[in-house]
Simulated scan of single mutants.
Amino acid sequence: MISRGKLVGIGLYLVATFGLSVAISNAQTRGRNARVPEPEDIVLTTKDNVRLGATYYRSTMGKEAVPIVLIHDYKEGRTVFNALARALQAPSDSRLDSHAVLSVDLRGHGTSTSAIDQTGQTITIDPARFKPVDFEDMVRFDMEAVRKFLVEKNDSQELNINKLCLIGTGMGANVATIWAAVDWAAPPLAQRKQGQDVKALVLVSPIWRQKGLPLVNALKQPDLVKEVSVMIIYGSENSRAKQDAENVFNNFERYHPDPPIDQVRELKDLFEYPLPTTLQGSKLLIDPRFKMLAAIDSFLKARLSDKSYKWISRGVNE
Rank of each mutant, 00 (worst) to 15 (best):
Ser298Met: 13
Val248Phe: 00
Pro276His: 10
Arg192Glu: 13
Lys199Asp: 04
Tyr255Asn: 14
Trp184Arg: 09
Gln243Lys: 09
Arg265Lys: 05
Tyr273Leu: 07
Leu215Cys: 09
Pro206Tyr: 13
Leu279Trp: 05
Ser298Trp: 12
Lys211Glu: 12
Phe271Lys: 02
Lys193His: 12
Gln194Ile: 11
Leu224Thr: 05
Pro259Ala: 00
Leu189Gln: 14
Leu293Ser: 11
Lys242Glu: 12
Glu266Cys: 00
Glu246Met: 12
Asp258Trp: 07
Thr278Phe: 10
Ser229Tyr: 05
Asp297Tyr: 10
Lys220Ala: 13
Thr277Ser: 14
Pro214Asp: 11
Ser205Tyr: 01
Glu246Trp: 05
Ile232Glu: 06
Arg192Thr: 13
Tyr234Gly: 03
Ile233Glu: 02
Lys283Thr: 13
Ile261Tyr: 06
Asn251Val: 02
Asn251Arg: 15
Ala200Ile: 00
Ser205Arg: 05
Ala295Trp: 02
Pro222Glu: 12
Thr277Tyr: 03
Lys193Met: 11
Lys268Ser: 10
Ser282Arg: 11
Lys220Arg: 14
Leu284Ala: 08
Val225Cys: 01
Phe252Ser: 06
Lys199Arg: 15
Thr278Pro: 04
Leu275Tyr: 01
Pro257His: 00
Asp306Asn: 13
Val264Pro: 01
Val182Lys: 14
Ser308Val: 06
Gly195Pro: 01
Ala294Glu: 15
Arg303Leu: 05
Val264Thr: 10
Asp183Thr: 09
Phe290Glu: 02
Phe299Gly: 09
Lys283Ile: 11
Asp183Gln: 08
Leu224Asp: 05
Gly195Cys: 04
Pro188Tyr: 06
Val202Tyr: 04
Asp258Gly: 01
Leu189Lys: 15
Ser305Trp: 14
Pro288Tyr: 07
Asn247Tyr: 03
Ala294Arg: 11
Leu224Gly: 03
Arg265Val: 13
Ile232Pro: 01
Ser229Lys: 02
Pro222Arg: 10
Leu189Ala: 12
Lys291Met: 12
Arg265Phe: 12
Ile207Val: 15
Asn238Met: 09
Ala294Gly: 10
Asp306Lys: 13
Phe290Pro: 08
Glu246Gly: 00
Leu293Asp: 11
Glu266Arg: 15
His256Gly: 00
Leu270Met: 06
Tyr255Gln: 06
Gly235Pro: 09
Asp287Tyr: 00
Leu279Gln: 15
Ser305Asp: 14
Phe252Tyr: 14
Lys268Thr: 01
Tyr234Pro: 03
